[in-house]
Design a protein around this nucleic acid. Sequence first.
DNA 1: TTGCATCCGGTACCCAGGTACAGGTTTATC
DNA 2: GATAAACCTGTACCTGGGTACCGGATGCAA
Lengths: 138, 138
Amino acid sequence: MSGLRSGQVAEAAGVNLQTLRYYERRGLLADPDRTLGGHRLYPPETVTVLKVIKTAQRLGFTLEEVAELLDTARHRHGPRDAGLQERARLKLAEVEQRIDDLQAIRSTLRQALDAGCDDLMTCARRACCPLPFADLGQ
Amino acid sequence: MSGLRSGQVAEAAGVNLQTLRYYERRGLLADPDRTLGGHRLYPPETVTVLKVIKTAQRLGFTLEEVAELLDTARHRHGPRDAGLQERARLKLAEVEQRIDDLQAIRSTLRQALDAGCDDLMTCARRACCPLPFADLGQ
DNA sequence: TTGCATCCGGTACCCAGGTACAGGTTTATC
DNA sequence: GATAAACCTGTACCTGGGTACCGGATGCAA
């Protein structure tokens, strides 16, 4: 019969109260149960879901993509749903691409850090250090 | 005396012409030389810089962060500039955090993929699969 | 030296992702 | 059962990151 009030969820997840409703409208959060008077009552996992959303966003996924990610991971009902399988596969490829790109950036930063300027200043005044980024994805 | 015209740069980098000017205003691209009549003339590396910017954005960096990344990597003038060193270190930590988070997402997706639903449906109707995400960064 | 593509600065607009506010109801506490 | 805190719906507004449009100037080729 019980659950968390919207304010509690917002607080626990560190998001604005309005954001909960916004996500609900966007379909990222399922419509929660209500009290008789119409106040929302969230199941406790909602907090986790919100953290997932925020994390995925930090990684550059749009809300729409996050929604996909969520329900790819979520209702995988029916044995071997081909559409979902396929979506998961695509998302996985995307994620892997991102990891690769980030690793390229990481190694450039590391070079920048521990080789110091002399090593990096071999590049022209203008064609400076970004060069190692040149063959990044997309 | 020469260089690339704005249209050529935009085309080569696959960005809108207006975006070049926008980035210039935002300080992401140095003010280019001009023809006598005032038309911009870009050095060829500009194309690479633009690709770097776009890649970093896809990874979830804001333009402001990209600007930081760029000049952390760029003018590392003066031996061992402490401020820049520090910024690079911070950025590196951020990048590493992102990589970790993405790897967590990747493994969840992989599970979702090759374990199929039965394995994942062990979770309650509502507390479904996002759980492995629970301890993500921040 | 004319003609057309390209570029200029300035301003206005667009979309995503929120956030704030208004005016009214519910809930919890005393 | 009064009253303050929390919540409701609806609508308006804000920021980041562009994009479009305008009227006018420039570049270049024939």
